[in-house]
Every structure is written in structure tokens, then in C-alpha cells.
Design a binder for these strands. Structure first.
Lengths: 231, 231
DNA sequence: CGCGGCTTTGATGTTCATCAAGTAAAGTGG
DNA sequence: CCACTTTACTTGATGAACATCAAAGCCGCG
């Protein structure tokens, strides 16, 4: 992890319009001085279960996974998310310690602002508060709904669902590199690594997808969508 | 459903300290005039998937289930929750229509406030906004964590977990009446009705619980907790 | 270049859903 | 209040879905 703490550069930040659309210039100045940007290499842990919650964190670039430790061998992945989605999803305003970890699955940059400052902004700036509620709401919504969708599906359906999630929501492309291992996909959609691989292989035999290592190409989108719906 | 729209009685409402702790007296007056209380009999639908979201709703008394329709025969239960937990959990600030339904599983009373008024309060009253964020955060947290806990468990573990949830979180008692049918428990913890019953019977044979129809008595708490942990 | 983690396939066994069939309980209409 | 219907509950038997175990090839990395 590396801290990038140069001069104030929020004015040019691509997140400004999203996150700060309702903040006055002088407030941005203040935030800019106190915010800290941190860079993480692929694989690095951004925050760990049990860590004190002191900062409001959001993802400026890269991709991360939210996960929980189940045992020495097993992890449970809560969500895989990219650019513009907050990392500080839940817990932040209701707990004192994180009950999940966040790891970079691609080189990532986070912007960190002291929670006390965010609290101050909420207290002083109603538009900001409303904006924040909407954005956090949208994110927790997404996680809950995805979890509900996944758990009603069988193995084929779950694999199809998650491939479509990567293709449509994350990469906007029918060809993409899986950002995670087979094992991690299993931890995400709650099935064994072997069966993730087996299902991949079946889909390949059925000419639904092509597989080149981590690269996935969706050939028969209609079919995959059907499997996701019915499975 | 029956609307109770008498004189303003928010001053004496037991929710005041929870929900309105940071609202000035004159604001409570305003809310009181526009709020609508509704009563629902056990089994009645409070709101339905696809309904326009126009009100912020919270549960004044009773118990409800949040659920989604999967097919004509199958429902998926998202959460069973009681007094003081908001009904308007997610969606409210990020969607225009509900993507879940809420039904009363006991006679219930809700308090309904126009969303536009809640928005106004957020904009004008920072303390209220912060309070609201914390409360909503806590609720969505609980749902996500419970879902994660449930899905890592096998059948025995899931049944043990949910029995402990009812005993500890909902009723604060080792003896309680199940507020839902075996079928609904299955829809909640993602298993077939038959296996819910089978597991209940096993627990009874193993002298972990007693069953008298809907009434459950936890006899061997330690054992049940162990099953919930290991299962 | 060798070690450990990732990937792949096959074989085996367990867990669980589904089907079937019967009993009990709870509504419902005369 | 009683016959009737429906819904909830219960147990056993069967088979499908899935995890686990085993073994071997592969790749990246120190």
C-alpha cells in the first residue's frame, strides 16, 4: 500500500460529480486537504475484518472483493465490485468495527475521508446527506438482490448468472478476463471449485462459452440468459 | 386494512424517541398531521412487489415478513422482523417501485409518512439525516449478515440458526410460538418444507427442542448453539 | 528447476429435494 | 354445529444434485 498525498487535486477528480455534486467549492477544499488517497497492488488487503472503522472509503479506480473469513481454508465472498461503487457499504454508520474484509483484485486506488468529516457534512449539508443515502441505498440493494437471486438457482443457473454479471455489469463486454480464480467464484456463488470448473467445461462443450485460461468469451448469449433464468 | 386517522397523537408515540429523537417539537407537529397510521390483520399484504414507492413506512407494532414472488407456487422470504424495525429497508431511496412485498404475520400497525416529507427533513435537519442513515444501515446490515450466515450452513445448522434467531432476537424467550408455517420457514432458510419438519423431528428425538404444534421450547440451548455453529 | 497453488477430470458418497400417502387441523358453507 | 374442503403437517422411499476425495497436468515464481 502506498499513500499518494500530493497537492490538492479533488477539483480534477472524476468522482467529484458523483460524490460531491452537492458540495460547495469551499467544502471541497476542506475535504481535499484531509482526504488521503491510497494505492493497492492486486492481491493486497485494503481493510480487514475487525479493523476499527475510522474512515469513509470509496474506490477511485480498480476492482475489489468484499469477503469474510469462515475458517483457515475457507472464505466467503460477499461482493465483487468496481469503480465508483463505495467500499464502505454497510457497517460504516452502524458498527465500530468492520465485519468483512476488502481486498484488491486489481490494482486499485481508494480515497479515504475521516468518518467524523463525513458526519459533519451530513449534519451541515442536507443535499449531501440525501445524495449519500441514495448511493448507499443503491449499493446495499444490489448486494441483497444479487444474493437473493443467486440462492434460488442451481449450479448451472448460478454460473450463468455470475458470468452475465461480469459481462454486463462489470465489463460491458461479451469477452472478458475473469478477475478471480475458480476457487473464488465458488466462494462467491456458494459452490465447490470443482463444480465451477465442471460447469465451465459443460458450457464450453455446449458451445455457450469459450475459455482461454482466465479469458471467457460468451458465444451463445441467448442460451446463457435462458440457463440463468431457468436454473 | 384500516386507517386510524384520529387526532394527532405522536407526542405519546413510543417510537418518538427512536425515530424522532432529533426532531424539534414544531416539526413533529407537522409530521403528525401528515402521517397516516394503518392497521393490518394477520395475513394481510402491507405492500406488494411493483407498488409505487410513495411513503416511508415503519412498523409501530406487530410482525411482518419481507418476501419476493418466485413463481405461482413459490415465495422467497427475505426477512422476518418485528417492532421498531423499519419496513422501508432498502429500495426506498434508490428505486421508484418496490422489488419485494411485505405481509403482516401478526396483527400489525404501520406509520406512513410521505417520502417527500422525509426528504425534506433530511435536507433541513442534519441530525435527523444522520440518525436515519444509522438506523437504515443497521437494518440492511442485519439482513445481509443473516443471509451470509445462513447460506454457509447445512440443513441442521440453518434450522438451529433460525430457531435461535426467533428465541434470542425476536421473542427473548426459550419458549415461543412460531409466527410462520413450516413452509414459510423453508422459504426463509432455503430448504424444502419436508426437511424443515424432518429436522424439527430429529431435534425433538435428540431432546434439543419440544414441539407442540406452533409452540417451540428449546430444552438444550448449548447443543442447539453448537449445531448452529458447526452446521 | 522445483515447489506450491491453480486447474482439470473421474469416481464415490452424502446431502438434500421430490414424490407419495396418510393424518391432523383449520376454514367454509349449509 | 356438523359435514365438507382445503391447507398444514408428518414420515418413508427414491433419485438427483452436489460436495468431497483422488490423481494428474499446468503454470508462475522464487
Amino acid at each position: 500500500m502506498k499513500e499518494t498525498d500530493e497537492k490538492c487535486n479533488c477539483e480534477g477528480c472524476e468522482l467529484k460529480s458523483l460524490f460531491f455534486s452537492n458540495i460547495e467549492a469551499y467544502e471541497i477544499e476542506r475535504i481535499c486537504r484531509i482526504k488521503i488517497e491510497k494505492s493497492f497492488k492486486k492481491g493486497e488487503i485494503i481493510l480487514k475484518e475487525g479493523d476499527e472503522i475510522t474512515n469513509f472509503i470509496y474506490l477511485k479506480s480498480g476492482m475489489v472483493k468484499l469477503h469474510r473469513n469462515l475458517s483457515t481454508k475457507k472464505d466467503q465472498i460477499i461482493n465483487i465490485t468496481k469503480l465508483f461503487d463505495f467500499i464502505s457499504l454497510f457497517s460504516v454508520f452502524s458498527e465500530t468495527k468492520y465485519n468483512y474484509s476488502v481486498s484488491a483484485i486489481e490494482d486499485s486506488v481508494t480515497c479515504n475521508i475521516k468518518l467524523s468529516e463525513i458526519r459533519k457534512l451530513i449534519l451541515e449539508n442536507g443535499k449531501f446527506a440525501l445524495d449519500l443515502i441514495q448511493k448507499m441505498s443503491k449499493n446495499t440493494d444490489r448486494i441483497i438482490l444479487q444474493s437473493l437471486e443467486l440462492k434460488q438457482r442451481n449450479l448451472n443457473g448460478r454460473v450463468a448468472f455470475i458470468l452475465l454479471y461480469f459481462a454486463k455489469e462489470i465489463y460491458n463486454n461479451l469477452v472478458f478476463d475473469l478477475p478471480v480464480s475458480r476457487k473464488e467464484i465458488g466462494e462467491y456463488i456458494n459452490m465447490s471449485t470443482e463444480n465451477v470448473i465442471r460447469t465451465f467445461s459443460e458450457f464450453r462443450k455446449d458451445k455457450i462459452i469459450n475459455i482461454f485460461g482466465k479469458t471467457i468469451e460468451i458465444i451463445d448469449l441467448k442460451n446463457l440468459e435462458q440457463i440463468s433464468l431457468l436454473g
